[in-house]
Structures are given as structure tokens and as C-alpha cells.
């Protein structure tokens, strides 16, 4: 059994055991006339805070706290476990109160973004590995500038050497904007090659009007278009993998704050937790 499968199996088993145990204890506790919702609420809060320890681990890589992959598995198992505890805590009801509504909405947003992040990592990573060069996200801008510079050099050379403005005109009309900034991000996100085919189609249409020298330049431009498109593809995928945390993490902290207020008020108005 590979490490990934082992971790996955252990995690799912842990979630299963947690589910069975929590359901059993909740049922028995309610029958035994305990204020079980206070206990499940406290457990839920602790689990949410525990799940955020992944972020601490990522910020302190120098500490001997185990590898990040194990922490990520732990994070996902605990996060999945909170869904079970949440369902038990609320009894499957959608809250009516203002604070509780905000809390529930925030919780489900965190869960949804977490699930989305997990899905992105499962879906996008192999795609990024299959297409184009795996460049560091921080270097994409530099490579984009490099490709633009190469393209502009080619175009200028064609103009000076061939004495024709066909390629420069084509570049200005169809390629300047393409090389200038990330393009077709949505199409890349949905795995669509349509914009790339359109551009390459334009290039092929132009080819019949060019002489041999210009065709050599056009071949160079065609290669740069493919490189730039692959770079945009990488940018699109890696941006998704990074920007979902812009929603997930802030909402998690908001959830903790709301949960803290909810815990204090619930405890105080329910007669005390201890």
C-alpha cells in the first residue's frame, strides 16, 4: 500500500470511528438527559481550532512537527470530522437566529472552500504536470516577459530583414496583447484549447502570404505562442491552487471568532459548560 493510500485509509477509518463514536455518545448523552449540545459544540470548536494547526505547521517548517503531507491528511480528516459533529450538534436543522445563521453560513463556506481546495489539488495537479513546463509560480511573470521580448525581437527582425510589415502588423493586431499579460485563464481553467487553436489558425492563415524568410519568423512566433499559452495554463492552474486559500483561511478565522462568541453566549445562557 502506497503512502497516499495508507494515509487515506487511516484518515477515512478515523472519520468513520469518530462518526460512530460521536453519534453513539450523542444519542446516549441525550437519552441520559445531559446537555449534549454544549459538549458537541465544544468538541466542534476544538476540532476546528485543531484543523488550523496545519497553518501553524506551514509557518514553522523548522520545527520537527512531522511532514506537511501528514499534516494535510490530518487537516482533512479533522475537517471532515467536523461535518459529522456539526450535524450532530445542530440536529440537522438550519439555524433561525442571526448569529447562528452567520455561524452556519461561515462554517459551510469554510467546508465548501476546503472541499474545493482538496478537489483542485486532486484535479489540477496532474493536469499541470501533463501540459507545459512546471515553472514556479513566482517566476511566471519573468518568463512571460522573456517570451514577449523574444517575440518582439523576432517581429522586429522580420521587419528589418524582410522589409515587410506583414508580420509586425499581424503581431500588433493579434499577438501583442496575448504576450503582454496572462490570457485565456478561464479557458485554461476549464481545460479548453479553443483560444490556442484560434491563434494558431490565424498564424496558419497568414503563412500563405509570406515568403520563405518570413515563414521562418512565423515558425518562431508559433513556437513562442505555444510556450506562452502553456505558461498561461500553468498560471491559471497554479493561481487557482493558491487563491482558494484567500477565501478558506480568512473564513476559518472568522468562523473561530464567531464560534467563540457563540460558545460564550450559549454556555452562559444554557447554564454553564462545566
Amino acid at each position: 500500500m502506497t503512502g497516499v493510500r495508507l494515509r487515506r485509509s487511516v484518515g477515512l477509518t478515523a472519520v468513520g470511528v469518530l462518526t460512530v463514536g460521536a453519534v453513539a455518545l450523542h444519542n446516549a448523552g441525550a437519552v441520559a438527559l445531559y446537555q449534549i449540545s454544549l459538549a458537541t459544540g465544544a468538541l466542534l470548536f476544538v476540532m476546528i481550532v485543531t484543523a488550523t494547526l496545519l497553518n501553524v505547521r506551514k509557518k514553522a517548517p523548522f520545527l520537527p512537527l512531522g511532514n506537511t503531507t501528514d499534516w494535510l491528511t490530518f487537516h482533512m480528516v479533522v475537517g471532515l470530522g467536523t461535518v459529522v459533529v456539526y450535524a450532530i450538534h445542530t440536529g440537522g436543522r438550519w439555524p433561525d437566529g442571526i448569529l447562528e445563521f452567520a455561524l452556519a453560513a461561515t462554517y459551510w463556506s469554510v467546508i465548501a472552500t476546503g472541499m474545493a481546495g482538496w478537489a483542485f489539488s486532486r484535479w489540477l495537479a496532474p493536469r499541470l504536470a501533463r501540459r507545459g513546463e512546471n515553472v514556479l509560480f513566482e517566476r511566471i511573470g519573468r518568463f512571460r516577459a522573456q517570451l514577449r521580448a523574444e517575440a518582439e525581437t523576432l517581429v522586429l527582425r522580420a521587419a528589418s530583414e524582410q522589409g515587410s510589415t506583414t508580420i509586425p502588423d499581424f503581431y500588433a493586431a493579434h499577438l501583442a496583447d496575448f504576450f503582454d499579460r496572462p490570457r485565456h485563464l478561464v479557458s485554461h481553467a476549464v481545460e479548453s484549447d479553443h483560444p490556442r487553436h484560434v491563434l494558431l489558425g490565424e498564424v496558419e492563415l497568414l503563412r500563405r502570404y509570406l515568403n520563405a524568410g518570413e515563414r521562418g519568423v512565423l515558425d518562431g512566433l508559433r513556437e513562442l505562442i505555444c510556450l506562452k499559452d502553456d505558461l498561461d495554463y500553468q498560471y491559471s492552474g497554479q493561481a487557482i491552487l493558491k487563491y482558494w486559500l484567500f477565501v478558506h483561511i480568512p473564513l476559518t478565522y472568522a468562523l473561530i471568532l464567531l464560534g467563540l462568541v457563540h460558545g460564550i453566549t450559549s454556555g452562559a445562557f444554557s447554564g454553564g459548560l462545566l
Partner: peptide, 30 residues
């Protein structure tokens, strides 16, 4: 973004819970 979200959450809670009448409406669990 995390910091601003937290500040917005705390600010919203502070505003909602500042006045007892509003507090009653906000904290009413149902």
C-alpha cells in the same frame, strides 16, 4: 485579507452586540 476579515468580523459583532435590544435579536438562537 485574513486580518481585514477578522477585523470586519469583530467590528460587526461589536456593532451587533453593542446595544442590549439589538443584542437580544442577534443572539436569539431561534
Amino acid at each position: 485579507v485574513v486580518l481585514w476579515t477578522c477585523m470586519a468580523t469583530v467590528g460587526a459583532l461589536a456593532w451587533l452586540l453593542a446595544v442590549p435590544e439589538r443584542r437580544a435579536r442577534v443572539l436569539l438562537p431561534g
